[in-house]
Simulated scan of single mutants.
Amino acid sequence: MGGDTAIRFRVGGSVLLVAHLLIVGWLTLRPLDVMWVTASNFTPFAGIRADLGMGAVEAMRRIGEGLALLAPLGVLLPLAGGRLHVSPWLSFARTVAAGALISLAVELLQTGVPGQVVDIDSLLLNTAGVALAHLAVVPAVRAGLRRRQEKRAVSALLREEPSQGATPTIPRVGIAP
């Protein structure tokens, strides 16, 4: 990408990233006024199994919420990074690790909020949502941007001033008699 385009992508991605994190913070870290609070869940998949036991519709809603909460990070983190030519696996690993750490931070911050409890399944679902969003969007968008960049480079080469032609050669002059 050109210098200005890369900066615009990074700034736009960073602004959207901060806005999304503020919304996530507001949704997950505000106190809830409830009569009772369920116990914390430190057993992986126990909450998902309990949700599945409540019925398919309720389970899909809760699992979908868990997947969707941090899923935009799968796109916004690479966008804020602004790298076009990067290893797809490295980008995926870096994005999923950052998403997992952000989800862990949210879960740990919830321990001090009235009405909010720690749930390991939320951490797993949030991380899976980040991974799925990254895989669904980022490789295709990067490939499209790389193609667009290559087309611009080719068209810039074609727009260059045409050359003056071949360099003129001077015929050899023989030795005078």
Rank of each mutant, 00 (worst) to 15 (best):
G82M: 05
G2Q: 15
L145D: 09
M35V: 15
W89F: 06
V141H: 11
G144C: 03
Q164F: 13
G13W: 10
G112Q: 14
A50G: 10
R83C: 10
R8H: 07
L29M: 07
F45R: 08
D33A: 12
G174N: 08
A71E: 07
R83N: 10
L101I: 12
S163L: 13
P44W: 02
G174R: 15
V141L: 15
G53Y: 02
R30M: 15
D119R: 10
A68E: 08
L157T: 01
A98C: 05
P139S: 00
L125V: 05
L27R: 12
K151C: 11
P177L: 01
A166D: 10
R159Q: 07
S87R: 05
G64K: 02
I170D: 09
V138Y: 04
L67C: 01
W26Y: 12
M35D: 13
R146K: 11
R30A: 14
P44Q: 01
L69P: 07
Q164Y: 11
A166G: 04
R148C: 00
G174D: 14
I170Y: 09
T111N: 09
L123P: 00
T127A: 06
S40E: 15
L17N: 00
P139R: 00
V57C: 06
N41Y: 06
V130S: 06
D33G: 09
L69R: 04
A105Y: 02
V113I: 09
T38D: 15
R146D: 06
V96N: 09
A59N: 06
L145N: 07
L21M: 08
P177V: 02
L77K: 13
L27W: 15
V75H: 03
I23A: 09
R61L: 10
L67M: 08
S122A: 08
L16D: 01
F9T: 07
A105F: 11
G64R: 04
A93C: 03
T127S: 11
L84F: 04
A128N: 08
P139E: 00
L124D: 05
R10I: 03
L132E: 02
V96A: 14
G99P: 01
A143G: 03
M1I: 11
A176G: 12
L90D: 04
F45S: 04
G66K: 02
S155Q: 13
R148P: 00
R147D: 01
E107D: 02
R172G: 11
L123K: 06
D51H: 10
G3N: 11
